[in-house]
Structures are given as C-alpha cells and as structure tokens.
C-alpha cells in the first residue's frame, strides 16, 4: 500500500517534469530563427494536406492555443509529417521505438548484471590481483570513448575476423526465405545485435562494477555480516545470500541515474551500427532539418528516460526493506 502511494507520487512528479520538457521544447521551436510554420509543414506537402495539418497543429492560432493543441496532439500521437520520409512521424517513431527498447533494455540488464557479478568478486578479493585487474578494467572501459570503441569492435569483429554483421538488424537472406520461421528471424536479429550490445555493455558495466565493489565493502563491515560469520556460515553463503543483495541496491539507483547517459550512448551506438532505432533517427533528422521528426524523437526519448526512472525507483523501493515511503 505504501509502495503504491509512493509510485503514484513519483508518477505525478514525473508527469510534471515531462510537462516542463514538453513546454521547453514548444518554446524552443517558436523562438528559433526562421518560420515556425515552415518548420512543421513539409515541403513535399500538397496545399490541402498542409492546410489540414496547420489547422490540426493549430499553427494558425494564437500562441497559447497552439500550446493547447500541441499538448493535445502529443497525447493523441499527432506529430505531423516527417519531411524526409513523407509519412506521419508517429509511424516512423513507432517502427523505431521497439528496436531501441530492445537494444537499450538488454544492454542495461547485461551491463548491470555483469557489474554486480564482477563487483562482488572484486570486493571479496579486495587487495588481491583479481581486484586490481578488475578495478583497472572497469576504469578503462568506463572511460573509453564510445564511438571509437564501436569502430574498434567493427574493425576487429567485422573486418578482421568477420564474425558478426556490423550494420542494421536483419539480413535479407533470412527474411526473404519463406521457410524461416520466428526462431530463425529472432536468431538473425540477435546476431546483428551482438556488436552494438557488446559496445554498450562494455562501456557501462565498469561504473556498475565500481559502485557494487564499494557498496559491497561497506556492507561487509555491517553487524549482520559479522553475525553471519559468527554463526559459522560459509563465505560463499555470506557473500551471495547476505551481502550482495543489499550491496546491489546502490547499483539499482545508479542504473536509474545513468539512464540519460545510456541514452546518449545508445544514440551513438545506433548511428555507428546503423541500428534502426530512435536515437539514430534523431541524429539523422537533425542533420536533415527534419524538425517534426526531431521533435517527436526527442520527446519520446525523454519519456522513455522518465518512465525507466520511475521503474527503477519503484524497483528500489520494493527491493530495499529498509526504505518505506
């Protein structure tokens, strides 16, 4: 019940934050140099379509009415027409969003699990060679420049070894083959996903490892661990059953806080590997002055970040018995 109330409260806060972002974007689109109408109406549009869209977006109305329309349109998914694709933005975004979610959630999960797992070991062997190596590895991968790392992975695994595809998310051999079923197609997508996933996981597991390590070290000083030791439990049980679940909590928080950061990395990764996701679409739309698409992509990415934040917060509250809101 408590948790439920907390969730509701957070949801409310996030709603407000989102509204602020929505509003800032609205203002930015109006104060930027140039004509706001031509920014939202594609050049390839027929006059009728354009007139229709102008009235739908309220671009012929006073500013505050435009704002009302804008908010309403956002919630009904009407972002106008993409200049480049010549079709409704919502369709383009709808195609790309699942791809981003797939890559994003998998990579966050893998890097967090890797971080927790290795961080635990590092803390357990504090001062030993394993610890030093792991900490150093974490520091290095954490600070490596992401696009460069992606290029190096392409060079090694794509060019030298030729193991993995480096482009897109499907290969036409599989999709044009009438005999390939769902499984074959999933395998194909997974195959394409390996390098982008590797890039993201390598970059992000480091910080989780470091956090897990220090949290674990703190936890090991706690009374209940001493008690457990006194009870004569094996080291393994103490480590895995008593210490690590508590130590993993800060990792959960930091996952939440680094989401915005991971989204940045996601956009870069998608671009380098031509992964048809929403981040790449944003980059593409920016270089093409495709304003409606850029606007929608940005808003949706913000929404994804906010909702994931909420999920992480609730997860945290749920996992930590000490915290009750």
């Amino acid at each position: 019940m408590e948790l439920w109330r907390y969730a509701r409260q957070r949801l409310f806060q996030i709603g407000i934050i989102f509204f602020v972002i929505l509003t800032i974007l609205f203002i930015l689109f109006r104060i930027a140099p140039g004509d706001p109408v031509s920014r939202m109406i594609g050049p390839e549009m027929t006059t009728e379509d354009a007139a229709h869209l102008i009235s739908q977006l309220g671009l012929d109305r006073p500013l505050w009415v435009q704002y009302v329309y804008y908010v309403k349109n956002f919630f009904s998914g009407n972002f106008g027409h993409s200049f480049h694709y010549g079709r409704p933005v919502i369709e383009v975004i709808g195609d790309r969003l699942p791809n981003t979610m797939l890559l994003f959630t998998t990579s966050v999960m893998i890097s967090a699990l890797m971080g927790v797992f290795l961080g635990k070991i590092a803390a357990w062997r504090k001062g030993e060679k394993t610890d030093t190596v792991m900490t150093l590895l974490a520091l290095v991968t954490h600070t490596v420049f992401l696009p460069w790392m992606a290029l190096i992975l392409i060079w090694i695994f794509g060019y030298r070894l030729g193991w993995f595809p480096i482009n897109g998310m499907i290969s036409e051999e599989v999709w044009l083959n009438p005999t390939s079923g769902f499984f074959a197609k999933s395998v194909d997508v997974a195959h394409h996903m390996i390098l982008p996933l590797l890039t993201l996981s390598l970059i992000y597991f480091g910080s989780y490892l470091l956090i897990m390590r220090s949290a674990m070290l703190e936890t090991l000083k706690e009374d209940y661990i001493l008690t457990a030791r006194a009870k004569g439990l094996t080291e393994k049980v103490i480590r895995n059953k008593h210490a690590s679940p508590n130590a993993a909590l800060p990792v959960v928080t930091s996952v939440g806080l680094s989401l915005a950061f991971s989204i940045n990395g996601g956009a870069l990764t998608e671009t380098v590997f031509s992964w048809p996701g929403i981040g790449r679409e944003l980059v593409f739309s920016v270089s093409n002055n495709d304003y409606p698409l850029a606007q929608a992509a940005f808003l949706l990415i913000s929404a994804v970040v906010l909702v994931s934040n909420l999920v992480v917060d609730i997860l945290y509250a749920y996992l930590d018995p000490r915290i009750r809101y």
Partner: peptide, 9 residues
C-alpha cells in the same frame, strides 16, 4: 546501408 564501411565489408 547507413554507412559505407559496412557496405564495403
């Protein structure tokens, strides 16, 4: 192809 390195490969 979004990028030419991929196409050449």
């Amino acid at each position: 192809f979004g990028t030419s390195d991929a196409a050449i490969l």
